[in-house]
């Protein structure tokens, strides 16, 4: 399951009645920032800017962890860790995989928000 809804559990419990608004805000932000981040990462691979790429992967990793998109997080972590060593082709295929993971996560997040 690419999405782990329990990621928000602790916040839900803590935020009480503010929880839904709070979580919705976070998820919305994620859904606006993540596609842009993925695009940026693609451009960064092409430009050979590996340091920036690794940083972007790190940020996306952190964000996907927050919303519970575990598979995406795992991919980002690998890209972060190996961003300096892997060749561009490998990174690109990984990134393509990440885009797919994101789309999957986005669908689930939307469903989940609708509930």
């Amino acid at each position: 399951m690419p999405l782990d809804p329990s990621a928000f559990n602790q916040y839900r419990e803590f935020m009480g009645e503010d929880a839904d608004a709070f979580i919705a805000d976070i998820v919305q932000t994620f859904m606006t920032s993540a596609p842009k981040a993925l695009e940026d990462m693609k451009a960064l691979i092409a430009a050979g800017k590996r340091t920036e790429f690794v940083r972007a992967a790190h940020t996306l990793k952190s964000n996907s962890a927050t919303v519970g998109a575990n598979d995406l997080r795992q991919l980002c972590e690998t890209m972060e860790r190996q961003g300096h060593t892997l060749d561009s082709a490998a990174l690109e295929s990984m990134l393509a995989q990440a885009v797919r993971e994101y789309q999957q996560a986005e669908r689930e997040l939307k469903d989940w928000l609708a509930k």
Binding site: F14, M15, T59, S62, N63, T66
Partner: peptide, 16 residues
């Protein structure tokens, strides 16, 4: 914190 989501999470928790 430079990451918008992390900012939101932290500020939200702190606010609470």
């Amino acid at each position: 914190e430079d990451n918008l989501i992390n900012q939101k999470v932290a500020i939200g928790l702190l606010k609470k």
